[in-house]
Amino acid sequence: MTDPDNLCYAPGTMIVGKWHRNRYQLIRLLGSGAQGTVYLGHSGDAHPVAIKLAKDRSSLISEAHILEQFGRLQGDPLGPSLYDSDDWVTGGSTVGFCVMEYLEGTSLSEVLKKKAFDWSLVYVLQLLKQLAQLHKTGYIFGDLKPENLMLIRPGYSIRCLDFGGATKIGRSVREYTEFYDRGYWGLGSRRAEPSYDLFACAMILIYAAAGRRITRSSEPQNQLKHFIDSQGKLVPYRHFLLSALSSDYTSAEQMRKELVRAMMAVESHERHNSHAAAARYPRPRTKRKSNGWTPAWLAASMIITAYIVFVVIYVM
């Protein structure tokens, strides 16, 4: 269970900060990634916290530094609040760690697998609003991917985790993941600009539609275009997606408005089409069945539409 090389520690392990002398007890593993391992823990009071133990202390230092700066900003929180940042001396080695707000929810990578595509659009809409706020602070997120986004339970709102890739605008992007990186697809530079994050947003939708990370072919640009054309769900957003993929949107706000417009245009179309399809291709055998399903389906899509309208009007 305990394997210090991989930052694996048994539940119950006490962590004591070398500098601030705060004590934390590990409860259970939350997840791990390239940069470190994150545990749920508690700090004495009833409050649960998330404790990130770092493999490489310098990348944790930058991440904590960024979280700290964001913590001083007004308005909606962009990421988890940072509570502490310290070193833990254990068995002759020193492990850097930071303690942050525990965000209770589900990773967007899990959620996208289960929910209908309409939901993915809503999430991206929310994400764009967060990004607009982040970009105003002079940073981009960098390593934007579903794994680094969390759907917080109350209110189904999106929050960004893992600011290890956050980069000052104008610099070179610190961390990225190939599938979500425009450089990898031959569609732009790795210089940190808002459009870098916006490209990743479009790729999140492509990921949601494909259900996996498609692998790059020798002609990546055409490949993405063809993929969009081959997916019924994506076709109505073709123009929107291609604009984001070619870095045409210069602000998250602009992209968000375009997405709202595209979503509104699609909803009415689809219902119209499905009526037409049902009328044109009557299937006698399953008629009764389909008659039973159509209202249910209609009701479901009305609820989704209503929710989207609600989110757009009241939440955003």
Binding site: W19, R57, S58, I61, S62, A64, H65, E68, S85, D86, D87, T94, G96, R171
Partner: peptide, 17 residues
């Protein structure tokens, strides 16, 4: 750099960056 207190380290890392 690692032996500096966490508060100062962030500043140094900014310079390194």
């Amino acid at each position: 750099v690692e032996d500096l207190p966490p508060e100062k380290r962030g500043k140094v890392m900014e310079v390194v960056d």
